[in-house]
Structures are given as C-alpha cells and as structure tokens.
Amino acid sequence: MICVHMKKKFILIDDDPIFIFLNKKVLETTTCMESVQDFTSGLDALENIKNNLDNIEKVVILLDIRMPIMDGFAFIDELKKTVGSDINKFIIYLLSSSIYQADIDKAKQYPEVRDFLNKPLNTDKMESVCKELMSL
C-alpha cells in the first residue's frame, strides 16, 4: 500500500484539451496522484502558481513542449523568474508526441527537467513515473 503522504499533486499544462482529458484519465488511474490541476496555457499556470506559491509544498508538472505563445522551455524560464529559489518545489516532466534530438539537447540546460514522456500517457508509463517519484 502506498501511504497518502507519498501521493503527489500534479499540474497538467497542454494547449490541446484532448490531451488534458486523456492525460487526466490516465492520472486518475495511477496510484500516486493526490490531485490534478490543468491549464491550456503556460501563462494561466504561472498566474495560478504565483497566487498559491505559499501553499505549494511539492508539485509535479507535466509540461507540453510545443505550445503557442509560450512553449515549454519559455514556461520554465518564466517559472524560475517567478518563484526564484522555490524552483526546487517543482518536478518537471516534458511531454511531446515525438521526442527530437534538438529538444533533448535543449533540455540538458534545464536541471529542473526530470525526464521526457511520450504523449499520450498510458498507465504503464505513469506507474513507472510514480515509482521514480516515490524514491525521491
């Protein structure tokens, strides 16, 4: 059995509502999810995080890379500016339909990025993520 306090809060950021819907469905079936919030733009997510920063203890962000206006990397840049040293409260997974070398190279400059995940998520993939999160 997994202890309740090991469960994590999740934030989903994806401009495509179908993926929000699908990924939420998968998250609901996983064992390590305590709650999930979703945003269709990085700006909305940032706004929300800024307002609730004090209440955030540890949060897992599942972040789509390719989004209009503010892509995944730009979101991380802004997040760091906004939260400062609180950045270690955030565990970030990048989501993409296909994983390109150029994105992998770029991600190496971001120590906050934990890993890449292929879209759409499925239960198997999420369970291995859960295992990883619990070992943290």
Binding site: F19, S97, S98, P120
Partner: peptide, 21 residues
Amino acid sequence: VYSVTHDIRSPLHAVLGLIDV
C-alpha cells in the same frame, strides 16, 4: 519537416489515446 511531422502526429496520438479510452 519537424513542424509537419509533429503537428500531424499530435492529433493522431490524441485519436489513439481516445481509442484507448
């Protein structure tokens, strides 16, 4: 090529995800 493949694959994967559901 990057954009086209990504932009086409993205909705395809959405469809595959929905079929799963």
